[in-house]
Design a binder for these strands. Structure first.
Lengths: 229, 229
DNA sequence: CTAATGGACAACACTGATGTTGATTTATGC
DNA sequence: GCATAAATCAACATCAGTGTTGTCCATTAG
């Protein structure tokens, strides 16, 4: 327990970053409920009191971390939140978005874990700005004539997002080295697109299901009426 | 602090069940790292010492709960684990499986949460028997001539499972009453099948992507060579 | 009816996390 | 250069959770 005799050079912004970084590491490991401010401070090499100075409470630290993560995802997939309103609907390229999502997910599995854990812990997952933007972009796409009819945007966005984010969690457990990450990312993007474009079953071999799908297009909730708050 | 003067009637099996039930409730709320044996015991209306008698340690209680959940999911979707070997491949009906999965998920959102949290916490998600069986059944299906070529079974199973399990988490946040659960379940099943059978984009409008998909069929990992351990 | 088994329980010591306070040091402005 | 404000840190009291131990009592076998 050789104490760091040297007092930390004073740099509030940097200290805050160090703490947030440590928080992310632990959050990815244990989830929101498993994180302790003591641990975070220790890992960050900062006194616990200092951490309390930057983040009044444990909850606020977690919230700040979650916000950081969500913002980073947003930027990686959709670009700058400031300019997003200016872009045209036609510019929302599903393939591009899918690629960026897949690549980002594979390169930041810890952030995916944090995001998913945060989502699972949140009382209102839909509040997340990244989620909203994703579902919104899918919605806008679905309303163009480039999309098939009968897309259930809500369900589809859940499947795409959860798949993309859970995939690295799963894949990493295979113990793949970093070099394969790109391939793994390509596989998700590939499969997502394949699902979107062609599907995997031979429709002619399943007339019953084909019927059911044709009849039951958007059974209850109209997928084309997005609910705004 | 009006103590329950009446001592609990002695019934080990029932007590164990009560504890497990409480553990599930708290596990669904806070996740594996957020659960405390004290809380569990209190919620179960059982002395903490009693809980320790049934589950030597906090970890073992969590493990027991996870096992319980996984087993229940397995039975709900695939039936009795004992007889599963006897069934024929042709009997694995993708539509049926999808339906059962969707319905079970919507009716047991807490179990979904537990399962996902457990998965995220696990160092080896693939070890889960339910997961293995699902991926296995998809794999077997993909090898029949009923399936399209180029299915990436690993990715597809991640997307389907994560989607099905995250959907109720998300949908519940809308505060939907129980009566709508069936509809919500139908929507996932519907969308899953729709994705599998038809896809959502007009392939003829995206020649570039169509090309990419045709060229890049299973870019690196051959989807038809399942890796056994 | 009695004794033995073991499930349910209360009490204890210990550890670790929380949030607070006040001292110490270091930027920064005048 | 000095004073002021602010950031870092150590120490404190408090509280909650853990795992253990020993007692009590319901069941059941003899």
């Amino acid at each position: 327990m050789t104490q760091t005799r040297t007092r930390r050079s004073r740099d509030p912004a940097a200290t805050r970053e160090v703490i947030l970084e440590a928080a992310r590491a632990l959050l990815a490991k244990d989830g929101p409920e498993g994180i302790s401010l003591s641990e975070v401070a220790t890992l960050a090499g900062v006194n616990r009191g200092t951490a309390y100075q930057h983040f009044e409470t444990r909850e606020k630290l977690i919230a700040a971390t979650a916000e950081w993560v969500s913002d980073r995802m947003f930027r990686a997939v959709f670009g700058d939140p400031e300019t997003i309103g200016e872009r045209r609907v036609e510019q929302v390229d599903i393939a591009d978005t899918t690629d960026r999502l897949a690549i980002f997910a594979m390169e930041n599995p810890e952030l995916c874990r944090i995001w998913l854990l945060q989502l699972l812990a949140s009382p209102d997952p839909m509040a997340d700005p990244f989620w909203r933007e994703y579902e919104g972009s899918l919605q806008r796409f679905a309303e163009t004539d480039l999309a098939e009819d009968g897309i259930d945007v809500e369900v589809l966005s859940v499947m795409m997002l959860s798949g993309a984010f859970l995939w690295p969690v799963w894949a990493q457990s295979h113990g793949r080295p970093d070099q394969e990450r790109r391939d793994l990312a390509r596989r998700v993007a590939q499969e997502s697109l394949r699902l979107c474009m062609y599907g995997s079953m031979r429709a002619d071999r399943f007339p019953g299901i084909a019927d059911r799908l044709r009849k039951g297009l958007t059974p209850t909730a109209p997928s084309s009426s997005p609910k705004k708050e």
